[in-house]
Amino acid sequence: MPQASLRKEHFGKFVAAVSKGRKFFGPLECSDGVQLAELSPQDVPAFEYGNFTLPPKRFFLPRSEVIAVHGPGGMAATPPSQERVVLFGVRPCDAMSLTYMDKVFIDETYVDPYYRSRRENTLIITLACRQPAVTCFCASVKGCPAGTAGADIAASDLGDALLLESITDAGHAFLAEHAGLMGKPSTAQLKARDSQHADAGKKMSPVDVEKLPARLQAAFESKTWDDISQRCLGCGVCTFLCPTCHCFGLHDEQVGPVQRRVRAQDACAFPTFTLEASGHNPRTRQGARMRQRVMHKFCYAAENFGELFCVGCGRCIRSCPANLDIRQTLAEVPE
C-alpha cells in the first residue's frame, strides 16, 4: 500500500493545501478537552489524546437536521450536503463504526441520501492509538489500536512525523495529490510503527463476546436486566456518545411561518422512544429499555448484519453518570 511520511512541522502547510478543496477537521484542544474541530493552517493540532468526547457519527448523522420544508406543492427536500470534508485523527474504533452504520443507512432497499452523500464526500484519516484508555476494548470486538477498517488513510504518530498509509482508492488519490509535502518513510520509521502498534494492542483487558448473541437470546427474560438497570438513570449519554447508535425520529417543527421536518437522533433509554399515540408503551421498565440497547448491539445486529454493533471505544463506560459498565453488563448475562 502507498506510504508517505509527513513531518509535523509541515502539518500547517498540509492543512492549508487540503483546505483548498475540503473542510479540514482535526484534533484541537478545546475548553472541553481535545475535540475533532475545524482546523486552520495556524492551529496547533493536539496529537496527544485518548479519543474525542463525541464520535464522528455527528458528521454523517447529525444530532438533528432539517430534511425538508413543507410548502404548497408538498415537501421540498433539503438537498444532501455535497461539502467535501477531511476528518484527520479519527481513532480506528470510530472509523470501523462507520462501516457498521453503512449497513443500516446504505442497504439494498432504501438508501439514506443524507448519510450516503456525507460518507461519499468525506475522507477519513485515522490515527493509530498508542495508549488505549482504561475503558478501551476494541481488540475484543474485531478492532485493534492500529486497525484500518473504515479508514481511507491510516496514520501513525511517530513523534516528529506522521506515517500515512492509504487504504482506499480515495486515499491513494489523496496521498498522490499531496505528495509534494511528504517524503518516503524510512525503514526506521516503519519499524517504529510496527513496534508501536504491537505495544498498544497489549494494553487492553479482554471482554468475552464469544457466543454473546445466543447467550443474550436465552437471557431475554432474565431478572438480571431489572437488577443491572436499577442503577440506570435513563439518560441518553451512552446512546448519543456511541459511535454505532443510530436510532432517530422524524418530527415536524414550526419555526415562524416555516413548517419543516427534522430528523433527530433518539435514545432507546427514553420512555418516549416507544410510547404510542394511544398511550400504550411496549417498554415501560428501564430494564426492558436497557435490554433493548444491549440486545440491539450484541444480538440483533449480529442477526441482521453479521456484526456486533460495538467497536469497544469505551465512551459509554467513561461517561455513564451511574458507572454502568457494558463490559460488566455483558459478563452478568447469565450463561
Binding site: 439518560c235 435514545a267 453518570p321
Partner: peptide
C-alpha cells in the same frame, strides 16, 4: 451551546 441534549443533567 456545548449541550448535546442527552438529558444526563436532568436524569441525574
Amino acid at each position: 451551546s456545548k449541550c448535546i441534549r442527552c438529558y444526563a443533567c436532568r436524569q441525574a
